[in-house]
């Protein structure tokens, strides 16, 4: 499970892309892609490879005016699923 001190980043070859045909955000990786909803896109937009997961969840909590605990739980599950699929890595 991703922790507050972990620093997530998108590995080389993975990028956010707005797909105009589907009218939705997609996360592209070589030969693979997943579609994102607005919340998923908002989480990934905060990931810069420098800020920790704890800092990111605080920023999202302020942006959405929602409890940081709920955001941390949902975001950790989401990012964990992306990490399992190799769409995301954590800084060593």
């Amino acid at each position: 499970m991703i922790g507050p001190d972990d620093i997530p980043y998108l590995p080389r070859g993975v990028r956010l892309h707005f797909d105009r045909v589907r009218d939705t955000w997609v996360l592209l990786a070589p030969e693979r892609a997943i579609t994102l909803d607005q919340v998923g896109q908002a989480i990934l937009a905060e990931i810069d490879g420098a800020r920790s997961f704890g800092v990111i969840t605080q920023a999202l909590a302020a942006k959405y005016n929602a409890p940081a605990e709920e955001i941390a739980k949902d975001s950790a599950g989401f990012l964990g699923a992306l990490k399992d699929r190799r769409f995301l890595e954590l800084q060593p």
């Binding site: 996360l27 997943i34 919340v39 699923a81």
Partner: peptide
């Protein structure tokens, strides 16, 4: 926009 649990869908 309200917070909701994010969903992902794989493009086959």
């Amino acid at each position: 926009m309200a917070w909701s649990k994010p969903q992902i869908r794989e493009i086959e």
